[in-house]
Computed example of a mutant assay.
Amino acid sequence: MSDCCPPNKSGSYDLAVIGAGSAGFSAAITAAEEGAQVALIGYGTIGGTCVNVGCVPSKTMIRAAEALYGAGAASRFPGLVGEAHVANWRDLIAAKEDLVTALRQKKYIDLLPEYESVTYLEGEAQLVDGGVIVDGANIKAGKTIIATGSSSTVPPIPGIESVAHLDSTQVLELDAAPKSLLVIGGGVIGCELGQMFARLGVKVTICCRSRLLPDMEPEISEALQAALEDEGITVCAGVAYQKIEQAGNH
């Protein structure tokens, strides 16, 4: 990516955007369309969360699980029998990765050269007076936008560091489906990934300290819990986390 957009020869920019995800790209392109010289600074895989580890991969897997679930649900209608199963988990994961790669190329990498006033720089950025330092190079900029996004954190539950655990990115990269899955947290991501894995044949338990989707109305939480339990998911709401420990080979 570093050779796609040659640096501004003057070394000075109207705007520096730190973060080359969807928000950073949008800011850089919008500024360029208004005539600004822009330094777009990326660190890690270009495209950020949505296309690489968020919306695109998760919704692809969720749609696959929905298709599987829909086939089995056909038996609700008299005279119909539907059946589907995961024939090859690795093929499913590979197809998801192929889509991520294609969209990253189309929506980000191939798009940058169309904006001559946007220079893409790779490296860790450090804010300084009058601009940004990127890998030791001083980038002068009149204004700076920080669009670095966020990263997942491990909850401070005693024992969690001593057992194997996954975040929402890693769980979508498994090369084999687990037999069972414990989801800690009943927010949107926990619920959608829990349902997805359950529909793909995994025994799922979701635990949360209050209720599912605690930012929503209680009636929504109740309806969602009932729906998930109807699909065979165990929901443990209103629990306190005391510790996590390895139990045999599980």
Rank of each mutant, 00 (worst) to 15 (best):
S2R: 12
D3M: 15
C4N: 10
C4A: 09
D14C: 09
L15A: 03
L15K: 04
I18M: 00
S22H: 09
F25Y: 05
S26T: 14
A28Y: 00
T30Q: 10
T30A: 11
A32T: 03
E33P: 00
G35K: 07
Q37C: 13
Y43W: 10
G44M: 06
T49Y: 13
C50F: 09
V51N: 03
V53G: 00
G54L: 02
A67G: 07
Y69E: 09
P78N: 13
G79S: 15
H85G: 09
H85W: 13
W89I: 13
W89M: 11
R90P: 05
R90N: 14
L92K: 08
A94T: 12
A94W: 00
T101P: 05
A102S: 11
A102E: 10
R104G: 12
L111R: 11
E114S: 14
Y115T: 05
E116R: 15
S117H: 08
S117A: 13
V118Y: 04
Y120W: 07
Q126E: 11
Q126R: 07
G131P: 01
I133W: 00
K140S: 09
A141F: 05
I145C: 09
I146D: 04
V163T: 13
H165I: 08
L166R: 10
S168C: 11
T169F: 07
Q170H: 12
E173A: 13
D175H: 05
A177M: 09
K179R: 14
L182Y: 05
V183A: 07
V188Q: 08
G190D: 03
C191K: 01
M196E: 04
F197R: 02
L200W: 02
T205E: 01
I220H: 07
S221G: 15
Q225I: 08
Q225W: 01
Q225N: 08
V235H: 13
V235M: 11
A237C: 14
A240M: 15
Q242F: 02
Q246C: 11
N249V: 11
